[in-house]
Design a protein around this nucleic acid. Structure first.
Length: 130
DNA sequence: ACGCTGACTATTA
DNA sequence: CTAATAGCCAGCG
């Protein structure tokens, strides 16, 4: 058996079948999040699953930390947790900024939760599969 | 270099 | 029903 240390490298290799350059885990997350249509939302798990790291939804959120310093900025407000809760709102410039941005895009948020989140949920894997 | 933390999720008690 | 635990992986002290 190969060493466990190469497991993460293998995973990344599978994500780049085109022999593309080694995009950092972050760039993959940013790319997916930026594909989220306006007025829609997605979850950490969905993005992680689209990258093949569904077991590490935390890494998606962690990537978001660096996302807002990227350019163009990543619509992290469209990324919520599995329950549709704006768990990451506290990491924005202002905690209410996340809800504010979502409402401006047509997403209603009540008590830090996305209204009809189930309908607004956008699966990145669907777009990547088309 | 080792250990803790963390914008998650699912499972078990 | 709620609470706690485990699994994930990379950055930071």
């Amino acid at each position: 058996m190969a060493k466990k240390k190469s497991s993460n490298e293998e995973r990344l290799q599978k994500l780049t079948p085109s022999g593309k350059k080694d995009e950092s885990f972050f760039e993959q997350v940013f790319d997916v999040v930026r594909q989220v249509p306006k007025g829609r939302v997605t979850t950490y798990g969905a993005v992680a699953a689209a990258l093949g790291t569904k077991l590490s939804a935390r890494m998606v959120g962690w990537a978001m930390n660096a996302a807002h310093k990227m350019s163009p900025k990543v619509p992290a407000q469209r990324v919520v947790n599995r329950a549709g809760l704006l768990t990451g709102k506290m990491h924005f410039a202002y905690p209410e900024q996340m809800q504010e941005l979502l409402e401006k895009e047509g997403v209603k948020v009540v008590h830090d939760k996305v209204v009809e989140f189930d309908k607004l949920f956008w699966d990145p894997a669907v777009e990547m599969g088309s």
